[in-house]
Computed example of a mutant assay.
Amino acid sequence: MVENRPLLTFLTHFALIMGVVFLCFPVWMALVASTHGPDALARSPIPMWFGDQGWQNYSQLLAAGLPEAGGVPLGRMMWNSLIMALGITFGKIAVSILAAYAVVYFRFPFRMGFFWMIFITLMLPVEVRILPTFDVVTKLGLLNTYTVLIIPLIASATATLLFRQFFLTIPDELVEAARIDRAGPMRFFWDILMPLSRTNIAALFIILFIYGWNQYLWPFLVTSDESLYTVVMGIQRMVNSGEALPVWHLIMGTAILAMVPPVLVVIAMQKLFVKGLVESEK
């Protein structure tokens, strides 16, 4: 029986509310700052409520862009980020689920050796892989393309490990039933494993989409064409504007718009995300 403790309930809710305020306050300040002009943010105290320049600021960002960011409209940068994030997400899921399927359900020489080779890559820092990968894509002539933004990042040892561990929990009876029904390997994969993996795929989709959307170092290295800038690169170029003062009201507007797609993905797939972490539909 759970006892009714008003003081404990109050303290719990108070701590929860304070945590939400602490996390959301920077977002609120960025949203407010994006609706003011540059003069309002240069004075003290900083305004805590919305201004009247929001429409002009966001219109300028989406349509014209800023010279500090190469003059590329923010809409173009967000489109590049979206293509990169979706390409990385679908690529990682496709490669990882097929690799895990092969490791779990097929018997071939050095099967576990290949799996451990994939797993060991988790221990390699990103910097170790960037230089040889950059050398390869340079020799292949892939710089300044969407291909170079996506293909080198689609391998994922983490996703392969998660799918493998999930497939190991599939009852053997399902495999035997598929064999009795004379289902081939691909039919078993599409008709049985894929529906069962739906929640796991949704959970990984959110994680991998945010991972792809927030990429900065790799796009920075492999793109010099301003039309291929991502939104994260745009924010960095706005902040590091050289001798000119940063236009903080437009930087904050860019940051707010950059948060919108990941937030929408999390909200849209929240239920599946939670199920993928705590449940199994077998």
Rank of each mutant, 00 (worst) to 15 (best):
L16N: 13
F22H: 01
M29A: 10
A33D: 05
P38L: 06
L41N: 03
S44H: 05
I46F: 04
F50N: 05
F50Q: 02
G54Q: 06
Q56S: 11
Q56A: 12
A63Y: 07
G71K: 05
G75Q: 08
M77Q: 12
S81H: 04
I83F: 06
L86P: 06
T89K: 04
I93P: 09
A94V: 11
A94Q: 06
I97W: 02
L98C: 15
A102P: 02
A102H: 05
R107N: 13
F108I: 09
P109G: 09
M117V: 06
F119Y: 11
T121S: 14
T121P: 00
V126I: 12
V128F: 10
V137H: 09
G141L: 03
L143D: 05
T145G: 03
Y146Q: 05
L153P: 01
S156N: 13
A157Y: 01
L162M: 14
F166C: 02
F167R: 02
I170Y: 03
P171N: 09
L174H: 15
L174S: 09
R179M: 14
A183E: 11
G184L: 15
W190H: 10
A203E: 11
I207E: 09
F220L: 14
I235T: 06
R237I: 02
M238R: 00
V239L: 14
A244R: 10
L257G: 03
A258N: 14
M259N: 04
P261Q: 09
P261T: 10
V266E: 09
M269V: 09
M269I: 06
F273P: 01
V278M: 14
K282H: 12
K282Q: 13
